[in-house]
């Protein structure tokens, strides 16, 4: 039990407990602030993490007062449109739960259907168990989980993997957290055909699409990470770019922004190379000009 180690021996305390001191001791505030800084938007996700952290804090205090309660199940399901940050958040979730003392190791094992489902009779169970053993003490992240179940093939081995998963999710709740991720509508269909799955997952979190200003903030954060920055007029151009790109088909939120920035970097590099006679300053190689963005096909 991870909590057992994290918590002092239960002792009956009659007096009131200083919540602020407890808060600081758990390092929760610092963690939430970091989350706010590094993840843009995603309000429902942050709310849920805050709730889990609060519950753990109160649970610690309750233990000190000699009141015990079982820990909640932490299995989660992330749904949302492409590029809304499901995978990114899952990667961070392992670290967060570890820091909250809910996971012993805090590593993440990321799998898809291929890693769980075998190719012939008797192949699936050992394969799934092998993955589960590796994920113990951490998070098992199943991306595009709806592929596990193939209703069109009644002899599909996916069902076997689902049954083993469900069994372990129920019996070893203290040992591992399972996070499923996928596009909303297809996950709904997956749950409809596996009702046991839905009820074993306590946290269904829907990732909303990003707003225009959030996308801009994301773009600036991404550029900052790669040591680039927008010139003021380039920033204005990118605001217009976002508005136009959103109206086009197959817009994939943050992923589209990342791809757009990759193309902007190509044009930026090409612009610099096309004029070999000039002397380049550090300013030239980090600043992105409006022309780099306006050359995009969305402005055509």
């Amino acid at each position: 039990m991870p909590l057992e180690d994290a918590i002092d021996t239960p002792e009956a305390i009659a007096g009131p407990i200083d919540l602020r001191a407890e808060f600081a001791a758990a390092g929760i505030e610092e963690m939430l602030a970091e989350l706010d800084r590094e993840l843009i938007g995603l309000a429902p996700v942050k709310t849920r993490i805050r709730e889990i952290a609060s519950l753990l804090l109160i649970e610690r205090i309750r233990r000190k007062m000699g009141l015990s309660g079982a820990l909640p199940t932490l299995h989660m399901c992330f749904t949302g449109n492409p590029g809304t940050g499901k995978t990114t958040v899952a990667l961070r979730m392992a670290g967060i739960l570890h820091r909250l003392g809910l996971l012993r190791r805090g590593h993440l094992v990321s799998v898809t259907r291929d890693d769980l489902v075998g190719q012939y009779i008797g192949h699936t169970a050992p394969k799934t168990k092998e993955i589960l053993k590796k994920a113990m003490g951490g998070v098992l992240f199943i991306d595009e989980a709806y592929y596990l179940y193939r209703p069109e093939n009644e002899r599909d081995y996916g069902q076997e993997a689902i049954e083993i998963l469900l069994q372990v999710m129920e019996s070893q709740r203290d040992d591992l957290v399972v996070i499923l991720a996928g596009y909303g509508e297809r996950m709904d269909r997956f749950f409809d055909s596996n009702p046991g799955f839905r009820s074993r997952i306590a946290h269904h979190i829907d990732f909303p699409d990003y707003g225009d200003d959030e996308l801009l903030a994301l773009a600036e954060l991404m550029l900052q990470g790669q040591n680039y920055r927008f010139k003021p007029e380039a920033r204005d151009a990118f605001v217009r770019y976002i508005a136009r790109r959103k109206a086009q088909p197959r817009f994939a939120n943050a992923r589209s922004i990342r791809n757009a920035l990759d193309r902007v970097r190509l044009r930026h590099a090409n612009r610099l190379v096309s004029d070999p006679d000039r002397l380049l300053s550090a300013e030239d190689v980090v600043s992105i000009e409006a022309s780099d963005i306006l050359a995009s096909r969305v402005f055509a």
């Binding site: 012993r104 190791r105 590593h107 053993k133 590796k134 113990m136 951490g138 070893q172 040992d175």
Partner: peptide, 14 residues
């Protein structure tokens, strides 16, 4: 042999 597990829970399961 189990050599690539980070946590003992996997071994205990077996």
């Amino acid at each position: 042999p189990m050599f690539d597990l980070p946590d003992a829970a996997g071994v205990m399961m077996e």
